[in-house]
Design a protein around this nucleic acid. Sequence first.
DNA 1: TTGAAAGCGCTAACAC
DNA 2: GTGTTAGCGCTTTCAA
Lengths: 328, 328
Amino acid sequence: MKAAITVFELSKKLNLSMSTVSRALKNHPNIAAETKERVLKLAQQLHYEPNLIAVGLRTSSSMELAVIVPSLSGFFYDSFITSLEEEASKLGYSLFILLSGDDPITEIDHLRVCRQRRVSGVFACITPETKDLTHYETLRELEIPVLFFDKVPAGNYNKICLADEEAALLAVHALQESNRKNVLALFGNMNLSISQRRHQAFTEAFVNEPKRLITDFSVTTEEARVRVLHAFEHAVKPDALFCMSDEILIGAMKALQQLGVKIPSEVAVVAISNGFFPTLYHPEITYVETSARKLGKVAFHRMIACLEGDMEVKELSIESSLVKGASL
Amino acid sequence: MKAAITVFELSKKLNLSMSTVSRALKNHPNIAAETKERVLKLAQQLHYEPNLIAVGLRTSSSMELAVIVPSLSGFFYDSFITSLEEEASKLGYSLFILLSGDDPITEIDHLRVCRQRRVSGVFACITPETKDLTHYETLRELEIPVLFFDKVPAGNYNKICLADEEAALLAVHALQESNRKNVLALFGNMNLSISQRRHQAFTEAFVNEPKRLITDFSVTTEEARVRVLHAFEHAVKPDALFCMSDEILIGAMKALQQLGVKIPSEVAVVAISNGFFPTLYHPEITYVETSARKLGKVAFHRMIACLEGDMEVKELSIESSLVKGASL
DNA sequence: TTGAAAGCGCTAACAC
DNA sequence: GTGTTAGCGCTTTCAA
C-alpha cells in the first residue's frame, strides 16, 4: 500500500501544528472557526482520510467487531449478519466474518485472530462440540466482550437467544385451531439443545389434546424428506405437519411435492422459520417467525451497551410471532 | 480494551532486547536456538499475542480484505464469501463484509471505510446504478487493488465473472435435446448487463431451432411468478421453461405449483443457478451451474497475485457445467 | 486558541 | 547473535 496523506503533511502545508489539525479534523470546540475551515478544505482537496490503523493503535480501539458463525449459507446467519452490518456501519464499526464450519479447532483459531486484531467485541455462535470455553475466557483477559447468540453455552455468560419454547407453543396453538387429527411433528438433530427444547415444549403443550401426535427427529433435510414419505405410506396418514426448522421444512415439502399431497386440503403445514423459505411454496406456509434480523439488531445494541461499560451479565431472548400463510 | 502483554514486557522479563524477542517470535534465522526457546516459552505462558494493529501500522499492511456485495441473503454472495473466507483465513487475511444494498451512496461510504482502514484489497460487486468509478479510483491512489466480480463495470479493470454466454448456451443445448416445442425463457432485470448477455446468447443460439420461443424479463421473483401464470392461460401453453437465475426460478416454480402443472411431463424446466434452489423441488431441476464458490476461490487467488505485484489488468471468467436433475 | 512532545506496539536498519 | 533506535500516523496531555 502506498503512503497516503497524513496529519503531519497537512500541518506542514497549513503552517499549523499536528494537534491543531487533528483537532480541527474532529471538530474540537476550541479551534477557531476559520482554522477549521482551512484544515477541512485542504483535507478534502488532498483526499485526506484518517488512518484507522494508527488511530486504533493510539486509542487501543479497533472499532472492529467479529462474528463467528458455523456458516453463511442458507437459513439464518446471513440474515443475522446483514442486520448486524446495517447497525454496525451506522456507528463506524466494521464487521469481520469468521466461519467455524462447526469445527471447534477452527473456532479456536478464529478466537486467536480476534485477540491479535484486538477486536472491540465478538459475537459468537458456538459449535455443537464446543465444551471448553477457556479460549473465550482469554478474550475476557483483554476485556473484549463476548456475546453468545443462537447456539450458546451453559453458564453465566452474556447471551441472546430465540425463545424456543414460546415458538413451539405458538405453533401448537395454531394447530389447535385447525381441525386436524393426526399430527406429524418433525424436529432437528436431537443432540442439539434447540431441538430438545422445542420438542419438549411442543409435546407438553399437546398433553390434553384429543389429537394423535407422532414426533420424530431428523438430522438432515434428506432425512426429513424420507421420514415424510414413510409417514404417508401408512393407513392413517398425517393430516397436519409441523417442521421445527427451515432445513426440516424443505425436506418435508419436497416429499409432499413428490407425493402430490395437497396443502392444506389433505395436509396442513406449520413451521418455525426465519421467514424466507415458507414463501417459496404455493400455498405459502404458515410459520412461527424466529427472526434472525431481530436477533441481530438486539445483539448489536447489547454489544454496544457492553462496550459502553455495562458489565452486568444478561441472558436476552427474542420473541416470536405467527405469520399466516395459507397452509393451515 | 485492556492492555495486553507486549514485546517490550517480554524483553524486560527475559533480559533481552525487543528486537531479539521480536525476531525469536518470528523464527528469524540468526537467533540462538536456546534464546528462541526461552522467548517462545514465556510468550506462551503469558498468552502473548502480537498486536496486529501495531504490526499493521509499522508494516503498512493490514492483512484485511474487504468484500462489497449487495446483500448476503439467498442466492449467491453467501457462497462467494464462504469460499473467500476459507481461502483468506488460511493465509492470515481477515474479511470485512460491507453490504451495499444496491445503493450507490452506501457503496461510496464503504469505499471510504476501505481507504480509512487501509485494507489490503477490495472485492467489489457494483450496484446497478454505479456509473461513476472515481471512488474506486481513489483506492488506486493508495495502491489498494480492486477486483470486481460478478457485476462488473465496463472498461479496463481487474474483473472476474461467470461465463454468462456459455451458461446460456449450455441451457439451450439441454433444451435442444429434449423434444419440446414451445419454450418460455425468463430473464432478470433487463437493465443489468448479465440479463442482456444471457438473453442475447440464448436467443442467438435459438435462431435455427424449429421451436417457438417467447422471452421475457422480470425484475422480481413475484413478477416471474405472475408471468408464468399468464403464460399458461393461453391456448398454446409452454412445454419448456428456462429461468435465468434462482430468483426467477423460485417465482416460476411457485406458479407451477399453483397451477398444478407436472414436471417434466407437462413442462420441462431448466435454470441457471448456483446449485441450491434446484434441489429444493421434486423432481430436482436441471440447471447450469454458475458456481459462486469457484468464483470466490479464483477471485481470492487472483487478489493474492495482485498483492504480490502482478500489475497486469485481467478479465477472468468462470466456466459453467450442466447438472442434471429430472426436470427435462 | 494553538503548539510541543510523548507514546501506543511493533519492525527493521544499523551497529556491535 | 544481540542491542539501539527511529519511526509508522495518530491523539492527548501539558504548556504557552
